[in-house]
Write a protein that binds this DNA or RNA. Structure first.
Lengths: 197, 197
DNA sequence: TTGACAAATAGACTATAGTCTGAGAAATTA
DNA sequence: TAATTTCTCAGACTATAGTCTATTTGTCAA
């Protein structure tokens, strides 16, 4: 990495850091891009060179969630356990992470942004690690004879995905006012019951 | 209703009609408020006197959905049938209505708007007819001994609500590219299975 | 070393949702 | 009917996300 790239990265990091702090303190919609560039001593040009939009800063943070799944969460699952148990734990830890580390304003912002027609959706990238993990767990469950066989693993993943979308959306409009991990568990129990043999 | 109220209502209707036509033709985000007021020969003042926001026009249309549930949909349910069957039909008809009469852009816009912190959410009004209908169907199902009894009807309604949120959100980001009624049916079958005894 | 090139940035400018103020007309009151 | 209040609307104005163009500065090849 040469000097120019280093400087650019430094600018990007500075913007990202300050912006996330501000979002955290005041909420996403109460922070303006002008404020961010003023606080970082940069400019519109710098800002939009590094980020596609104001939302985009959050998206970068949100994308880390997939690293979290792969690096932190997956290794904690015991291969010996039933698929049901693994899925349960997976979702449970996911919710704790979202509740603690991300927070409802991040989720709200991401979910809002994904509804914008203009840009392509992050949620629709088919090879997101999240989907791959869920897929392999569903296949595992079918192999072990736990899950119904009249549904394809793809269909099951879709069902789980929509379950998560539903609860996170609901959590967002409720401004994080209910326990995500508790409510998710209740919903999961119902869905998994519907998917077992 | 006096003359002034009549005129005002006329203005409101004109704005609403033209706006919805434009949204329908060009998509919500490709229509500007300036265009609407120009086409209707009105003004910003008139527009924002009648609607809280550009989104709000859609919300009015969307609120009709609850009338639809009560007036059109509910009477078609045979009280003799099982609660499961009634719920299934209810959701089925709901999806057809949404798919045909509202369309994904309306849903997308509503769902996006509901994520705005500023205004109070329509989804969170606890006595929406939709929730009341679902509630009574869940109570019915428990009375008839079809459904689990370790969950309260409220909890079941919440689960159904999140199921719907999940699939409609997903449908929106997919720009209406999958069959709502088909996919909803598949999801419902899983969820109801998890709720039955 | 120098000149061409490309990347990064500054900041003016644009587009557009939404606010604010005032004016005129209708309703209400005396 | 005259005075007063209130509702509806017009349109100028504001706030803010995002675009565009010019400038600077580092890079690289000859």
């Amino acid at each position: 990495m040469n000097l120019r790239q280093q400087k650019a990265l430094q600018t990007k990091r500075k913007i990202s850091k300050v912006a996330l702090e501000l979002f955290n303190k005041k909420g996403f919609s109460n922070v303006t891009v002008d404020e961010i560039i003023e606080k970082t001593g940069t400019s519109k040009g710098a800002f939009y060179n590094h980020f596609k939009s104001k939302h985009d800063i959050f998206l970068e943070k949100f994308k880390e969630i997939d690293n979290f799944y792969v690096d932190e969460l997956l290794p904690k699952l015991d291969p010996q356990e039933s698929a049901k148990e693994k899925l349960k734990k997976f979702f449970f830890m996911q919710m704790i992470y979202i509740e603690k580390d991300l927070g409802w304003d991040v989720i709200r912002t991401i979910y809002e942004n994904e509804l914008n027609t203009e840009r392509e959706s992050f949620f629709l990238i088919p090879d997101r690690p999240l989907y791959q993990i869920l897929y392999s767990l569903c296949v595992d469950g079918q192999k072990k004879g736990e899950f119904r066989e009249d549904l394809t693993p793809e269909q099951m993943v879709t069902i789980f995905t929509r379950m998560i979308r539903g609860i996170l959306y609901d959590w967002s409009i409720n401004k994080g006012e209910f326990s995500l991990k508790g409510e998710q568990e209740a919903l999961f129990d119902v869905v998994i019951r519907g998917l077992m043999k």
